Amino acid sequence: MMFWLAIPLTLALYVATRALYRYLPWPIINPVLVPTAVIIGLLLWFPLPLADYQSGTRPITALLEPAVVALALPLYQQARQIQAKLKPIVICTLASVLISICTTLLIGHLMGADPSLLASLATKSITTPLAMSVSESIGGIPAIAAAMVVVVGISGALLGYPLLKLIKVTDPEAQGLAMGACAHAIGTAASAEKGVTQGAFASLAMVMCGILTAAVAPLLFALYHWLT
């Protein structure tokens, strides 16, 4: 029964949000944030079991994997530009990963956060499956890691391009790298709407940050535990 409610409601909210954004192009009118908020409100109001709603949206969820694979298309289209600038791309994405993890450890330590919470927060800037896996491997809580990924992704999609415009970052390649490195898949989707170049470089940054985080996070956490 939930199948006939969940899919039409999810799609209707998404389409309505996109249509509203065309008339009112405000960052807050985000096709991830608005439908999510409305659905949460409806589930709490009626109340409806979350597990049943998730089960009803499985056909949509199944499309996530091919959608991620489809992000390879803009990468292929921009292959020459990426190859020519591979070294600065690697440096930028590595710097992003180090800043993300190190600031989490530093701020969390100063606030007295539990190590398991730090491990859950440190993977906030990579895509959900990787974040959950890496977080668990270093002693984190996958559910918290997944929640933080969603929060960071939506925040990046809302604030990323306005902030880049404010600090006068206008190069599409730099914009894409910044969004993919900081806001993973949701930021990459927002970048793809801006242009092919932004989408390609955001996809590349998302992939590279995921790989680098998986490699660097265990080492940094081992160093953190040794120092503390």
Rank of each mutant, 00 (worst) to 15 (best):
157 A>R: 03
177 L>R: 04
169 V>A: 14
35 P>W: 01
152 V>E: 02
168 K>D: 12
228 T>E: 08
93 T>K: 03
57 T>A: 14
182 C>A: 15
199 G>F: 01
118 L>G: 02
26 W>V: 13
204 L>F: 13
50 L>K: 11
183 A>S: 15
136 E>Y: 05
127 T>F: 01
39 I>M: 12
178 A>L: 03
55 S>D: 10
52 D>K: 06
166 L>I: 02
40 I>W: 15
119 A>D: 05
101 I>M: 09
22 R>D: 14
129 P>C: 09
79 A>M: 10
179 M>C: 08
41 G>R: 10
12 A>N: 13
95 A>W: 05
27 P>H: 11
6 A>V: 08
11 L>A: 13
75 L>S: 06
97 V>M: 11
89 I>E: 00
122 A>E: 11
3 F>Y: 11
44 L>A: 14
117 L>Y: 04
59 P>H: 09
122 A>K: 01
46 F>I: 14
115 P>C: 08
43 L>G: 04
61 T>V: 12
128 T>R: 01
195 G>E: 06
152 V>C: 12
191 S>G: 11
61 T>N: 13
104 T>S: 05
7 I>E: 05
15 V>D: 07
211 I>L: 15
148 M>Y: 06
60 I>T: 08
110 L>G: 08
5 L>M: 13
11 L>D: 00
77 Q>K: 14
59 P>F: 06
62 A>I: 04
205 A>K: 03
2 M>A: 12
224 Y>N: 06
225 H>G: 04
76 Y>D: 06
51 A>N: 07
158 L>Y: 00
214 A>C: 07
73 L>I: 15
13 L>S: 13
44 L>K: 11
79 A>F: 07
183 A>I: 00
182 C>V: 13
76 Y>I: 11
74 P>E: 06
6 A>D: 07
15 V>Q: 14
200 A>I: 06
186 I>E: 00
90 V>P: 01
150 V>P: 03
131 A>G: 05
99 I>R: 07
27 P>Y: 10
61 T>H: 12
10 T>R: 03
58 R>N: 09
144 I>L: 14
55 S>V: 00
78 Q>V: 06
138 I>M: 05
157 A>F: 11
100 S>T: 14
38 V>Y: 08
115 P>H: 10
81 Q>C: 01
70 A>L: 08
132 M>Y: 02
141 I>N: 08
69 V>F: 13
53 Y>E: 08
87 K>F: 13
81 Q>I: 00
48 L>C: 04
92 C>S: 15
47 P>Q: 11
132 M>H: 02
144 I>E: 02
221 F>L: 14
2 M>G: 07
113 A>T: 02
103 T>V: 14
220 L>M: 15
21 Y>H: 15
33 L>C: 06
99 I>E: 09
199 G>C: 04
109 H>M: 03
